[in-house]
Design a protein around this nucleic acid. Structure first.
Lengths: 225, 225
DNA sequence: TCGACTTGGTGACCTAGTCACTGATTTTTT
DNA sequence: AAAAAATCAGTGACTAGGTCACCAAGTCGA
């Protein structure tokens, strides 16, 4: 992690923090540092407990769970403007889960030491609100994952994920294995489902990527229960 | 909810709260009430946002998620000595999830008004720790649910759940439909799996309940990946 | 250009969920 | 007490999705 100079106005990136009193802003300015984290770094995970509270300024963190059998499922992504609730959980002591956070892009984040974090939670009502909201948003995300995995058809889940992962031109850069890891499934299953979507004209499969050819139809499918 | 007199020593039921300073205990004693909630009451859910923070003294709350298709899955149970983290999340504003909390038994709980809760979080380091720990424990529970649903065999999940639900004599009072709702599955699937377990001599199926006849073997199965 | 690796494709098979229907038992109503 | 209704469990046929074993084509480094 590289240190960088602290832009005193970074709090403006966090909608929940805009109303903070000057005293708190001062505390943050003095005690926190801006860090840059390279792509693919492991931010937390089994054996990588974080020691500071992170607020993302740029980039996204992919949080996923890996099973003993080597299968993987993505739980959620934290993007700019959000905090990583799990980091908080780790900081606060209870830390025996086995999820992993990976920098999906290069990341710029504000790093707040444990003690300062606790201090600000104690003194600022707005900051408390911010932290609790982040926590409950994550819980909501996890609820959604459970609902999807337990009750949704695979083609619908795949369609939804393709739309989420697509860039502006409708290109998803991911192998079949990557998509299987997103959804907690197996590569062969993704292969077959993509073939099906291709036969129906919604996508075109390429080596290492997928091209959305009928976004409207794919959105229709993704809205199916 | 009935009011009841406040036992000033109830904080001793919460391992995380034993070290609280007197000032905080006083605040709790003055501002919170002990409530009793009858079995089967809905504690929170879509359209039932809770207005106070609850600490359970006795009883258990079953938190589950219901899909549009009417299928259900149990997310976790909060038992005596724990707080209901979701109540916290609700209190803290972000509340658009659709999980439901039901009193599985009669419940005795300490009810702390929103404002008092926020005040104590601000003033007591121990209380903060307690709240955050509760949050992260729930997140851990949800991780486990996701792992089980996504990656575990159904017979293993069923075995585990039977062991969790069994009383001291090895009796599980639940219909096949109840068990399906526990695991987010369908009744017919439970019927067939129970038949299989019965053929293997691990259980005996009765109308409205299941009897564990070989706890050792069932535990063996439940430890299988 | 050889060999290793990555990515995708495929058939056979197994596990779990769905649908439609049946029978048995228990509870409620009359 | 008899009839009706609701609850609970069982079953066969079928579909969806995951597993296993293997193959083929593309890619990349030495």
């Amino acid at each position: 992690m590289d240190r960088a100079t602290l832009d005193p106005h970074w709090t403006q990136s966090f909608p929940g923090l805009r109303q903070l009193p000057v005293s708190v802003l001062d505390k943050l300015a003095v005690s926190s540092t801006i860090v840059k984290i390279p792509e693919h770094s492991i931010i937390f995970g089994p054996g990588h407990a974080p020691e500071t509270f992170l607020l993302l300024l740029e980039g996204t963190v992919r949080v996923s769970q890996v099973s003993e059998g080597g299968r993987e499922i993505v739980l959620y992504r934290a993007t700019a403007g959000e905090s990583c609730a799990l980091t908080t959980a780790c900081l606060m002591g209870y830390e025996d889960y086995h999820a992993t956070g990976v920098a999906e892009t290069g990341i710029t984040a504000v790093s707040i030491p444990r003690g300062v974090f606790d201090d600000i939670v104690a003194t600022s009502r707005e900051f408390r609100q911010f932290v609790f909201t982040a926590f409950s948003r994550r819980i909501t995300d996890l609820f959604q994952v459970i609902e999807q995995v337990a009750f949704s058809r695979f083609d619908v889940r795949l369609a939804r994920r393709l739309l989420e992962l697509a860039d502006s031109s409708g290109r998803v850069t991911a192998t079949h294995q990557d998509l299987a890891n997103e959804l907690g499934s197996a590569r062969e299953v993704v292969t077959r489902q993509l073939q099906d979507l291709q036969r129906r004209g919604l996508i075109r499969g390429l080596r290492g990527s997928v091209e959305i050819t009928d976004r409207g139809a794919l959105e229709g499918l993704s809205r199916t229960t």
